[in-house]
Every structure is written in structure tokens, then in C-alpha cells.
Design a protein around this nucleic acid. Sequence first.
DNA 1: TAGTCGTGGCG
DNA 2: TCGCCAAGACT
Length: 365
Amino acid sequence: MASLREALLCWFAENARPLPWRESYDPYQVWLSEIMLQQTQMERAVGYFQRFVARFPDMASLAAASEEEVLKLWEGLGYYSRAKNLLACARRVVAAHGGALPHDPKTLQALPGIGPYTAGAVASIAFARDVTAVDANVERVFARLFDLDMPVREARTRAFILETAAALVPRGKAREWNQALMELGALVCLPKRPRCSECPLSGQCEAYRLDLVFERPVPAKAVDYIPMDVASGLLVREGRVFIQKRPETGVWAGLWEFPGGTVESGETPEQAVVREFREETDLDVAITAKLAVVRHGYTRYRVALHCFALRDLNDAAEPALHAAQEGRFATLAELSGLAFPAGHRKLIDQLVGQNRGGLLLDPMR
DNA sequence: TAGTCGTGGCG
DNA sequence: TCGCCAAGACT
């Protein structure tokens, strides 16, 4: 055990990537990075982190922010409840903890958006507490190191991993140790292409000894992906387009969108967008142009997004809000300041990039 | 406990 | 092109 710890800590000292929050281990920055890194790879999170810290350098400035601005900064990073909880957590920390994150994992875990992993990560990395932080990297490393022959998500396996992790934390070095385990998983002990020849632990790895590295961890049952056609419409009035703000819960909570919805079986995208517009806004619309088909995915869905330009069929009435908490007409330029789901953002960027915005929205045409 | 909740990259 | 993935939390 001693040599295992020594080997990994030594490797981390040599191979730790230089990351912004590793310069100071400022608790606010560590917490922010950990929230961003939930289900997100390092390279994607770093840019978002830097923009966040530049705009909100500390807990107090973040707590004073509007949800609209936080969502805009989070746009494209996904899992938007993290942004909502980030803001709620900052406000709670200011209101109940004097603006400073608590050091204790249990107290941390009571805060919005902080679960078992993040509580352990912040307590150890920001506050040097001797606690574990077990994420998917650590599970994979342990599954190989100890040749665990059952899926890591299984309750008994998780219990074993948590127990083992707790026993391994070197006193006073949890900050380095927890990061070292995750860094090893991210750089060396890779899911599909493990680099065992570069691994400081290969000599002590049971799966490596048994030539079972590629069989570990035992895969969970595969998710089935669901292809889906969605139709969305840009209703244009006097150079502005109708947008609505999605409900507080569910997918893309609090983000703006163009009305639309699933293309039902036996229905064309054209029929779907007209039907959805009527259902969501009570407006009767007609299609003036097909703008694009944007392909994107979310969770287990793979979406073909059919996008149309629309005009009012009858007299222009105020849109109802049956599927939104807010609605308005906005210029194409205004859309750049609001947060949209990635698929809608792709469409907006396409329209602006092709300079079709003017063609589409110019009231003179 | 099992489902929900995003996204972009990669082979 | 497309299936599969990659630093969890919440209900």
C-alpha cells in the first residue's frame, strides 16, 4: 500500500496538468471547477471556467448575478440544472455561511448541486480534508487495480470501492491523492485505450497481471438511443422573431427557444410545426421557408431539428404561453445575448453566418 | 432504484 | 454517418 501511494503521488507531481484552479486552490474556484466537471471533460470546462471567473471573481459577485446571465455563461456546457444550482448554492453560502464555503463534507453536501462526489472533492482539494472523492475515473482505476468482476454501478461494487478508497487516502495528502487518481484515469487508465506501459501502477494492477484490462470495468448495460424528428418555427413580425423561455423544470430549463416539438408518426415536419405553434401559442401560422435541418443530440435522444420561417396566417395576435414562462419578439442581434439549447444556437449561428438574418427578418422585404 | 438531464469529439 | 462516450446530482 505504501508503495502504491508513493508511486501515484510521485507520478502526479510529475504529470499534473497545469489548470487555472490548481494555481491557488481558492475554494470558490475549486467548487466552481468541480460543478463544471460533473459529466464534463476537462478540455471543455476550462474555457467556461475562465469566463466565469473573469465575470464572477468570487462567491459574492456570483450570488448577486441574475439567473439569465449565469445561464448565458453556461450556454453550450449542458446539464443546465448545474447552472441553476450553482447560483442557488452561491446565494445560500452568502446568506447562511458568510460567503465562505463550509469545510465539512456533510455540510457541503447539503448545498444545492453538491452530491457525495463534489462534497468530497471540495473538502479534500480546497480544504485538505482527508476524505475520498470517488468519480467515474476512480471507479475505473479501482475496477482494474483490484480486478473487480461486476459492474461498477452495482451497489456492492460501489460499497467496496468507497471502502477501499477511504482506506487508501494518505493522511494529510488527500488533495494530491484524489486528484492523482482522477488524473491517472483521465490521462493513462483510459476507458478504451489504456496506456498501461506508461502507468505507474501497472506493477500492482491485478487486471494487468491477468491480462483483463480491456474487460474491466465490466460494462453496464448499453443505453438505447432514440432517433427523433423535431420541428421548430421562427415566427417573424416586423423584423423580430418570436422566442419563449422554457419552464423552470425539465430539459433546457430556463433557456430560450423557438416554439416547436416532436414530429408525430404519419406527420410531416411542416404539419408538425404548424400544429405545435397552435398548441403552444394559440397562433395560426404559415410556412414561408425551410431554413435548415440541424442535427444534435441530448441525453439519449438523437434529433433532426427541422427549422422553418413562419408568418401569421390570421391577424397578428399576442402569443399565448402554454409551454413557456415568458415570451417576446426579439431581433436577430438580441438573440446573441440570450441562452439557447445547442441545436437552436447552431441554427441562429447559421442564419447569422450566412447573412440570412437580414433576408429573413428585414421588415422591408 | 431507475430515469432524467446536454454536449461535442472520436473512431 | 453514427454509435459511444466523458470529473454526478436529483427525483
